[in-house]
């Protein structure tokens, strides 16, 4: 690497940013694809049920199915809003 190159590479090169971003999005999309067909509907219905009891922001709900070898984990992750009433769930 020449001295000039060192100056030029003080900023992170865009190709490696591209690679990192792609690795994340592709892994995410593959995970979604590999889920069972009912997953999107399950996700929607779960969110509907929760929304009946708690005022939630739909973007703050994550329903993900992780499949490893012989076990699957259904992960439900909800960011509850600031506590405003007694509508807490377990």
């Amino acid at each position: 690497m020449s001295i000039l190159n060192i100056f030029r590479s003080s900023k992170k090169n865009t190709a490696s940013i591209a690679k990192e971003r792609l690795q994340i999005i592709v892994a995410h999309e593959r995970n979604q694809r590999s889920g069972p067909d009912y997953l999107p509907i399950l996700q929607k219905e779960l969110i509907d049920v929760i929304a009946k009891y708690v005022k939630i922001d739909r973007d703050q709900v994550k329903v993900e199915l992780d499949q490893q070898d012989d076990c699957s984990v259904l992960e439900l992750n909800i960011m509850l809003p600031e506590r405003e009433s007694n509508t807490e769930t377990a």
Binding site: S9, N13, T14, A15, S16, A18, K19, V26
Partner: peptide, 14 residues
């Protein structure tokens, strides 16, 4: 080489 473009290996890895 300049770091502006994904390399063959990057694409293959993904």
């Amino acid at each position: 080489d300049r770091g502006d473009m994904l390399a063959i290996k990057d694409i293959q890895d993904i």
